[in-house]
Nucleic acid binder design. Structure first.
Length: 140
RNA sequence: CGAUUCAGGCAGACUGUCGCGGGUCGGGAAAGCCGGCGCGAGGAAAGUCGGGACAGCACAGAGCACCAUACUUCUUAACAGGAAGGUGCCCGCAAGGGCAACAGCAAGUGCCACAGAAACAUACCGCCUUUAGGGGUAAGGGUGAAAACGCGAGGUAAGAGCUCACGCAUCGGGUGGCGACAUUCCGAUGAGGUAAACCUUAUGGGCUGCAAGUCCAAGUAUAGAGACAACGAAGCCUUCGGGCUUCAAGAGGGCUGCUCGUCCGCGUCUCAGGGUAGGGCGCUUGAGCCUGCGGGCGACCGCAGGUCUAGAGAAAUGACAGUCGCCCCGCAAGGGGAACAGAAUCCCGCUUAUACGUCUGGGUCGUAGC
RNA sequence: GGUCUCUUCGUCUAGUCUGGUCAGGACGUCAGGUUUUCAUCCUGGUAACUCGGGUUCAAAUCCCGGAGAGACUA
């Protein structure tokens, strides 16, 4: 089944508790210009969901219109790239929360962000692969 | 035609694909389902500097503080806003523009460093006079940001508004103006500055802000434990209603900041410790916008008709591609560019940011022609 | 979103209410001295009022506006 290239509200993290949990328990790595924080969750009551949180700090861009632009570009590139992540998650019936913190101080073009996002998704899949193996070992 | 100035407008348009937030309609038992239609950033949305609307709390009253405003008339829901006008200063050849904390140091107090004799009532040098002590004198000197109305003449022992002409300032009267004020009128006076120093006068001001507040659901705590104290005690007087004195208690809190006053209220201390999740409303029809007519120099006001134009909530309004228009480079093909900047309860202002931008209209100056 | 506060040498600060007399001090840094040398110590220098206007004879200080930091508030 093909994954839609959309981003409805249930695929975004809005609750304060969820955000707190993600940053407390989640693991992180960096792919310039992003700091990625992620947390895999097993929740049987809901369908498989990859949720996203975008953060652009006021310290790096103190103009609101610049922050908005960066966030919009990130969401756009995530939307186009999330399909491969979904494939993996649906296979194992696991959900994932991802936070993307923008760490650069200049606005990169959409093309660049698109390429970087491919790498982010790729790395996420790899991380899941390794952690999943250890998880299964522990289970045994 | 060029330069400049004032007033006002604009803040690229359209198409396709994918996507987001509300609304609405249809399908569906329902859904994080499917589809259609329509709406979705600004002139400053910004700064949060004024002022309101709205909301909660408070409000017997009085006084004192505190804060704000400060030429006049008008305008507005209101304002430290706006319009027109007056006065002073500054910029400009001009048209025109900018600034004013433009009430009061002729109510009181303070301050005016250094210098200077002296900084607000005083004579250092000098000049005149006198035997001397002393007296008169602000013309000259030096100091300073500021020093006895200025300048000329008369006058005098020397001088001095002491007198006169011209001018300056303040006050009073007259005249003009609704008024600020003006004045080629008349008279009087001639001893600084500073109120963005305290202050005086006049006017105004409750406090807090949508994270205000309110509803649903759930929960509940003036809970619990310990210690101490305790529903007053004693005495005196009495007209038997009560009053007075001493001891104990008199906690804590509201009424803007304080005081008076007033109200709620009735143990105190210690230990230990719960709670703030989530959702709905507030939330967009309003001092609204557009057009026309009328009134007014103008800000603005009145009437008529039309119109509905974002409403999020870890927060939507985007991405890509193409076409046309604008600007720059280039003979051309083609290439490049498009500012400041993102709603958060809502309005009215102000301030700040903004393209060597552009359009419309009025004026001034210069050049050329008629 | 709302309500407030602050900004002084390279760094930390005093002074701002109440305007004036060299904007003071500490650490740093530079030069010299002391020492065989280094440290310590001593002497001297260096260097600042966040920016733009206004009031005043005179502004770090008073007033207005801008910029930049920070705090509080469910």
């Amino acid at each position: 089944m093909a994954v839609k290239e959309n981003l409805p509200k249930y695929e975004r993290i809005c609750k304060e508790n969820d955000i707190q949990l993600l940053f407390d328990k989640g693991e992180g790595f960096s792919v310039y210009p992003f700091r990625v924080v992620f947390l895999f969750r097993r929740d049987e009551s809901r369908p498989v969901t990859c949720r996203l949180l975008v953060s652009v700090s006021k310290k790096r861009f103190h103009h609101a219109f610049k922050r908005n632009r960066v966030k919009r570009l990130i969401r756009e590139s995530w939307r186009k790239n999330k399909a491969s992540l979904y494939e993996i998650c649906q296979k194992d019936n696991i959900s994932v929360d991802v936070a993307l913190v923008y760490t650069a101080t200049v606005i990169h073009s959409y093309e660049e962000l698109f390429k970087k996002m491919q790498k982010v998704v790729h790395d996420l899949a790899k991380k899941y692969g390794s952690s999943h193996e250890t998880h299964s070992k522990n289970a045994r």
